[in-house]
């Protein structure tokens, strides 16, 4: 499968394996097409997880990952792409309904927006919160004091 994709898309895809787990690094521009192909032609019908990793020192600061599983093949694959801060990604809700909440969580925690998402808003943190806690420049003790003071009537949550 990976070689088939490799011949079709050339240098846009780099298939890799670590500890027996397959993953591929895909160019940002190919993402919508690759996800669609994986779902429709390669039977990856279960989107296990969507998440991101922040590397503040890199030019393209974020790794965004899709963990996919195929019931028919009993196989897992991870698709990874690199994007810069402020760059958006196309939503995969039309491909996998489950992406709805998972993308909202990525937005909430990292501030990565997904274009075309039906309801792109925070999920775990309150709607008015400032900042995205899983970014590396967000301290572990940091919080949105303004929000806490207005909404909870206390000086600080700490």
């Amino acid at each position: 499968m990976v070689t088939k994709l490799k011949t079709a898309y050339g240098s846009g895809i780099e298939p890799l394996t670590y500890l027996g787990q397959n993953y591929m690094v895909v160019d940002r521009s190919l993402i919508p097409e690759i996800l669609q192909v994986l779902r429709n032609e390669e039977q990856f019908d279960y989107c296990v997880d969507i998440t991101a990793v922040h590397y503040p020192k890199r030019d393209k600061q974020f790794d965004v990952l899709w963990v996919l599983y195929s019931y028919a093949r009993n196989e897992r694959i991870r698709v990874k792409t690199l994007i810069a801060d402020g760059e958006t990604l196309p939503t995969s809700v039309p491909i996998w309904t489950t992406a709805n909440w998972l993308e909202r969580e990525v937005f909430d925690m990292f501030g990565i927006k997904f274009d075309g998402h039906p309801d792109m808003k925070r999920i775990l943190l309150p709607d008015g919160w400032k900042g995205h806690p899983l970014r590396k420049d967000y301290g572990i003790l940091q919080q949105d004091n303004e929000w806490v003071q207005i909404n909870l009537g206390i000086e600080s949550g700490q």
Partner: peptide, 26 residues
Amino acid sequence: GYFIVSDGSTQPYRMRVRPPSFVNLQ
């Protein structure tokens, strides 16, 4: 599921938990 990124130090660089309840609740 757990997705862990290691940068070779004593602390994980990224610790992602894929919780079944969160996804099922949807």
